[in-house]
């Protein structure tokens, strides 16, 4: 005998099941992600500065005051510039290198591919904190780097670097290239091998296969990787926080550290911090939009 009697009963049971399944997860998500995101934008337009959130000192809206403050702060531009460097290294360093490694491994141009892949991906899985302190000690005046340099150039003297961001960029390249390698390998595996074989039999060279078969098939993945690299670069916090803390003299600061300092160091300025994070989100979305536009404009079929 069927358990459901009427259509109305069935509908009601269906609705009840739907909401009991969806609500627990949705409520958690709304309260820790969706609401805070909206709240952040609202805060950036107020003069709230600590104290009880609701029912405390009255909070008033001050419009775009903090955004105005931001755009005249030289440290904002310094942080922005450093972030753009990281974006550049990610898009034009990690992605091409990752692609090269994936290509070599996927086409079986070397033996022991599994070993190479495992080792090259290894840095990506380790805690950023461990990586940051490790490299900080490695590059420090007392660390291994000056010693290593002296092996090649005995007159090498450790000095205060004129490009303090260099080590940070290097570590970012070191740490995340493996991730793009893995993404590309997974997508290379989706390409029909018989097409490549057929091209080879027809006399296509390795370069021609790459140019006319593999790259066009991967254009969608390249765009996704670029988007990942851009949003990842703008988010970078842990590594720099641990490696340099933004120093010396804020020379390696990035937007997220700039924001963190405003919110949690010294006298908190929550509205300003939220103005920074809102600007970060806007930059991220516009760069992603730009990437999509470039893809749309200059071909590349998914």
């Amino acid at each position: 005998m069927p358990k459901v009697h009427t259509l109305a009963d069935a509908k009601r049971e269906q609705r009840r099941a739907y909401w009991t399944l969806v609500l627990p997860g949705f409520l958690i998500y709304i309260s820790v992600m969706a609401f805070p995101t909206v709240f952040s934008v609202i805060l950036s337009l107020t003069d709230y500065n600590g104290g009880r959130l609701f029912g405390g000192k009255p909070v008033s809206f001050v419009g775009f005051k903090w955004y105005g403050r931001l755009f005249v702060d030289e440290y904002f531009y310094l942080a922005l510039k450093n972030n753009l460097w990281i974006v550049l290294v990610s898009v034009f360093g990690q992605i091409p290198l990752g692609f090269f490694l994936a290509y070599v491994l996927h086409r079986g141009l070397v033996r022991y591919g599994d070993f190479f892949q495992t080792m090259i991906y290894l840095p990506t899985v380790i805690s950023t904190v461990v990586i940051g302190i490790l490299w900080k000690s490695f590059f420090a005046p007392y660390g291994a780097f000056p010693e290593l340099m002296r092996l090649f150039n005995p007159s090498y003297e450790y000095g205060i670097s004129s490009h303090p961001l260099f080590p940070v960029l290097f570590v970012i390249l070191w740490m995340y290239t493996g991730m793009y390698m893995i993404i590309f390998i997974a997508n290379l595996q989706k390409i029909d091998g018989s097409v490549i074989e057929a091209a080879k039999i027809d006399g296509a060279s390795e370069g021609q296969t790459l140019r006319y078969i593999i790259l066009p098939a991967l254009s969608g993945v390249l765009v996704v990787s670029a988007i990942l690299a851009i949003s990842g670069s703008l988010k970078s916090f842990d590594l720099i926080y641990v490696m340099t803390g933004g120093g010396p003299a804020n020379r390696t600061t990035v937007l997220s550290i700039y924001m963190f300092d405003k919110a949690f160091k010294g006298a908190p300025n929550y509205p300003l911090a939220n103005a920074i994070s809102t600007v970060m989100v806007l930059i991220s979305f516009s760069l992603i939009g730009l990437t999509k536009w470039v893809e749309h404009k200059f071909g590349g079929k998914e």
Binding site: V32, M33, F35, P36, T37, F39, S40, L43, S231, L234, K235, F237, L255, S256, M259, F260, A263, Y270, A273, N274, S277, T278, M280, V281, S284
Partner: peptide
């Protein structure tokens, strides 16, 4: 991003 929810 985590940054946009950190302070709130």
């Amino acid at each position: 991003t985590l940054q946009s929810i950190m302070v709130p």
